[in-house]
Amino acid sequence: MTGEKADLSVAARIPFRQVRGDHRVPEARGSMCPEPEQVGESDGPGRPFTAAVASRDHITVEGEPTMRLSLLGGFALRMDGRAIALPLNAQRVLAYLSLDKVSRPECDRALLAERLWVDAPTGRARGRLRTAMWRIRQASPDLVGGNTNNVWLADDVDVDVHDFSHAAHRLLSETSDLPTDPTQVAVRPAELLPSWDEDWLMLAREQLRQLWMHALEASARRLLDAGMIPQAIDQLLVVVAEEPLRESAQALLIEAYLREGNMCEARRQLASFARQLWTVLRVRPSRDLCERVGGELNVERLR
C-alpha cells in the first residue's frame, strides 16, 4: 500500500497539460481503476494503447518538463529537478529501454516482457509489463511511447549512459580534437545499476567498461601524437590498472616511455606485464612488443 500511495501522490501533483489545439490531457488518478493486467493490451486502466501513449511524431507541449534518467551509480529519475519515485518494475522497464535505445530506437513488447520476467508465464509477464507502463505514465506520459507491437523511451529523456557513450565515441572518432580536460576522461564511470542482479545487465556493464578503456586508449594515443606524453602516460596507467593483461594499452604505455627517452621504465613495464601474463595465462608477450625494448625477455628469470 505504501508504494501505491507514493505513486498516486506523484500523479496527483501533475496538472492537466495543454497540448496543440484545444485538447486537454489529464493524468490517470487511478485509485478506483482496475489493475492494468486485467484490461487486455492497454497500458492503463480502460484506455486503448493508441490513446494511452505518446506518438513518435513530435508534439509541441507548453511547459514541457525536463526529464533526466540516471543509471550510473544507481537508478534516479528527475523531472524539472524533482526526484520521481517509481516501483521497481517500472524502473526496470525504463532502464532496459534506455540501454536498448543505444543500439535500436524501439523494443518489441513481447521481447521486453520475456527479458524482464524470464520465469513468468507469457501472459503474466505481459501483464506485469502493462502494469509497469501504467505506473510510468502516472509519473509522466512523456517518458515512453509505443504502438501495438513496440515501446520506446521518449527522445526527450536525457540519460547519463547515453551522454557517456556519446562522449566516448567522440574520443574514438579520428576527427575529434584533443580532450579539453584530459583528467576528466580518466575517471572511471560509476557502475551501471550496481545493486541490480539482472542477467541482461551483465553484457551492458562489460560494454560500457570496454568502451571506456577504448576511449582512454584513443585519447592517450592522440595526446601522445601531440607531444603531451605525461598526460598520455597518466591515462594509460589508468587502463592497465583496470585491465593489467590488456596488451594494446601496455604496448602504448611502453611506447610512451620510449618516446620520452625512458628505456628503463619501458623495460620495467614490459617485465611487469610479461610476469603477469605468464602467471595467469602461461603465455609470453608478442615478439613485436619485446623487440621495441631490445629483444626477448627471459620469462623464467621474471618469475
Rank of each mutant, 00 (worst) to 15 (best):
G127L: 12
E64S: 03
L72P: 01
A76T: 05
L112E: 13
S103H: 15
T50D: 15
D163H: 09
H58S: 05
L77A: 00
L97R: 08
G145F: 11
E106L: 13
L116G: 14
P121L: 04
R56E: 06
A51H: 14
V159C: 10
L99A: 13
T131N: 13
N89C: 07
L77M: 00
A83V: 14
G73E: 04
Y96V: 11
R68Y: 08
V61S: 01
R92F: 15
P48Q: 11
A52L: 09
L111Q: 00
I59R: 07
W117C: 00
A110C: 04
R126W: 08
A54M: 12
S103P: 04
L129N: 15
A54Y: 08
R92A: 15
D163F: 03
A110E: 12
D160W: 02
G123N: 11
A125L: 14
V118N: 01
M67W: 01
N149C: 09
L153Q: 09
G63L: 00
F75A: 12
S55I: 02
A113T: 14
A132G: 09
Q138M: 09
A52E: 11
D156Q: 04
S70V: 01
Q138W: 01
S140P: 05
P65A: 05
W134N: 14
G73C: 06
R128C: 09
C107V: 08
P105R: 15
G74W: 00
D80P: 10
R135A: 15
A110K: 05
G63H: 00
L112N: 14
I136M: 12
L116R: 14
D155L: 09
